[in-house]
Write a protein that binds this DNA or RNA. Sequence first.
RNA 1: CGGGAUGUGGCGCAGCUUGGUAGCGCACUUCGCUUGGGACGAAGGGGUCGCACGUUCGAAUCGUGUCAUCCCGACCA
Length: 577
Amino acid sequence: MRMSNLFVQTLREFPSDAEVASHKLLVRAGYIRKLANGIYNYLPLMWRVLKKIENIVREEMDNAGAQELLMPFVQPAELWQESGRWDVYGKELMRLRDRHDREMCLGPTHEEVITSIGREGIRSYKQLPVNLYQIQSKFRDEIRPRFGLLRGREFIMKDAYSFDANEEGLDKSYKIMAEAYKRIFERCGLETKMVQSDSGAIGGSVSHEFMVLVNDKSENNAGENDVFYCTKCSYSANSNHAVSVLNEAVTTGKYEKAEIIDTPSTHSIEELSEFLNVSSTIICKSLIYVIDGKYVLALIRGDRTVEETKLMNAFCGNEIRIASAGEIEEIMKESGFNAVAGFIGPKGLKNIEIIADETVKDLKNFIIGCNQNDKHMVGANWGVDVELPDRICDIRLVEENDKCPECGSSLKVTRGIEVGNIFKLGTKYSKAMNATFTDKDGKEKPFIMGCYGIGISRTAAAAVERHHDEHGIIWPLTIAPYTVIVVPVSDQDVQQMEVAQEIYKKLQNKKVEVILDDRAERAGVKLKDADLIGIPYRITVGKTIKDNLIEFKTRATGEIELITPEAAIEKLTENIS
RNA sequence: CGGGAUGUGGCGCAGCUUGGUAGCGCACUUCGCUUGGGACGAAGGGGUCGCACGUUCGAAUCGUGUCAUCCCGACCA
């Protein structure tokens, strides 16, 4: 490709609306252009990168025995009503009506459609296992799209779905996908960590996410997830799913007698522990949440934080939020109290489900809210002063330096970008949608399913997050839009231009993806653009051409070699083979 | 959905307080000159100042509304 023909506009400055490196650089280097909030044009350079990633994905998926197909982007509401998700998916599902007033939606994911394909096409266990995938644009009407391609509303995704006759089959399919994913990201030049995760709205039991770890806390961090990992063993999990063994803590308070005492204006645990001069580990914190419209009181040790996803899952909910001051007032009124947040406790509350984190059950002589403003009960004990709730489970957020649940070493935390995930769906969709096959024993059984996603456009953005410097993008060779850019320093130097043209043609003949910067620009402009766009190799044809030498620069290392044009061509043909 | 901020040529911004018919840098066009890290000179083209209503002789500027965009929050009682 000749640079003079390439459709790309690099900008002198970063766009004002971008925060993170990948967003800034992809816009500035002319790869993407925003069309609407969370919706981007993929310009020619970007599209080449995306196709490279797609092709790696295709090769590995095909090698893993999956077959590519393509499902519609617009889907009928009926399918979603069948699975039951039409009512639970919420506002992220972009709904619309056609001219006949039939309800439709834009596909955010394709479990329903694939299940309908499976139930029509697979009749016998002899046809199993089957793994089908597609690469396609998805649309999710995100609450808050941000970070350019990292969280867009429209994005490109590879989604695969497996059908098996039994759990063992699913385990096998799942494992095959996990291995394929590892290879895919490796080939894209990305180191990933496979972490345990919550299975969220898609449903199912076991799931893992593939995270690109972004540790750099100094700059704007594009990682939207916290990942806890063990320093000794292989345990790692998304914070919404991570569990831990707690370090020892003081759990017996100094108050030997239960009584209600004045604790004026102690709205937070911090204020309370300071006022009473006690450790926050002997305070029982009470929090009111709203899960799918129902009120829940959650109890947790004062030094700990509730992990909302875990709490929500304890109630099989879809939506969770903390109760507002108004709602708390309403709840209090119902039980004949008027306490505000900070003084709430479980005792005497009506019409509310109470759940406790494991951390509270060992508390003795502890401190707890008693639904009276500016007062707390001290020296409380379960079963004597306050009833221990029936439901006790792990609803807490893991913290750094907690102990690993598997080996007991300490846990660390880092930020991560989720580029892929794999789920064991089980029979969630096949049962709901009556998708069955005839098994060996002649009985009709629902498919055991799995689903497997990779964010193609997000993977590209994650690659930029991981691979860039102050001059621009540094694409991994395997997903770079072009392999090499040939830059004649002066377009007026006849010899330089001739040699550059010659190198360009020779590389083209050898099927090396090459750009010739034939623009009538000054050297500085061309060199800056080459760095910004991030082509892995640069051949600069300058004054040294008189000695038959060109400059061969590796973008990633900055290494520069003075070699002959022939040697450069040699290097590049070796590189791509 | 709450809180904050911003909307002025393709991009980045000034002008708004104190109303008088729109400006700078980059980019673009033509010419000259220049060619190893975003040169220089000259001459050009391009903007209903987000939109609507209002105040006024007159609105980018003041007021009301609305839309869009960005950030923060969706949070520990």
